[in-house]
Design a protein around this nucleic acid. Structure first.
Lengths: 107, 107
DNA sequence: AATCAATTTGCCTATATTACCAAATAGATG
DNA sequence: CATCTATTTGGTAATATAGGCAAATTGATT
């Protein structure tokens, strides 16, 4: 494992980590439908506006969303929509989890 | 956003979070080639054995890997191979990141 | 220029994560 | 049974993350 390889895994992990929070997932899901202002996202997520803003900045520095200020509002949108493909597989993992839990109960 | 919805995002985030660490990504990548004992993974990752073991337990409780003790060794393998599809999109995000960084320099 | 609205930043506290070491466990072997 | 090997568990310290409040910023409005 070379140093460059390590850096590559580091970079990948940073992207994935940015997605590893429920509020951020909610926002990504909402942004899948189109661009949204911070206020829209706050309504959905339900945290303090400053908290939402910080989550968005995590997504932005990971390269997952980009923003665009128009007037008083800042609009965010997905930069790389393939992110959405993750969810299918994540659901598969959750199903496996459930299955394993059942099996454990039976044994 | 109902409470059940929130729980669903929570569960998804937990799975994704488990992937959000460079060492764990390395291990998943290695396991893509087939099952491996903890010692194999330790060699690749290069951390303390106990650290590697804990990372594996994170992946296991997320439902991403399963393990199997045979003799003195414990073998791990991927439970849900679609995980590997993530990487393509993550690379796309990284490329976008790089492009944005370039654009920022030019402006 | 003063005020208002939307968002971000700074600060602080609580909680979570990571890593290593040392000790415990479990199976194999002499 | 004593011992060796592979792995896990417990303890602990360092660092990172998350959330809210208050203050700062930025653009719009009067």
């Amino acid at each position: 494992m070379t140093d460059v390889d390590r850096q590559r895994y580091e970079a990948r992990a940073a992207v994935i980590k940015a997605l590893g929070h429920p509020s951020r997932l909610m926002m990504v899901d909402e942004l899948a439908k189109g661009e949204r202002c911070v206020c829209d996202l706050q309504t959905i997520v339900g945290s303090d506006m400053s908290t939402v803003s910080k989550h968005l900045s995590v997504l932005r520095s990971a390269g997952i969303v980009e923003d665009d200020k128009r007037g008083l509002q800042v609009f965010y949108r997905l930069r790389v929509p393939c992110i959405l493909n993750f969810f299918g597989c994540v659901e598969a993992v959750l199903k496996e989890q459930a299955r394993a839990a059942q099996a454990a109960l039976r044994s």
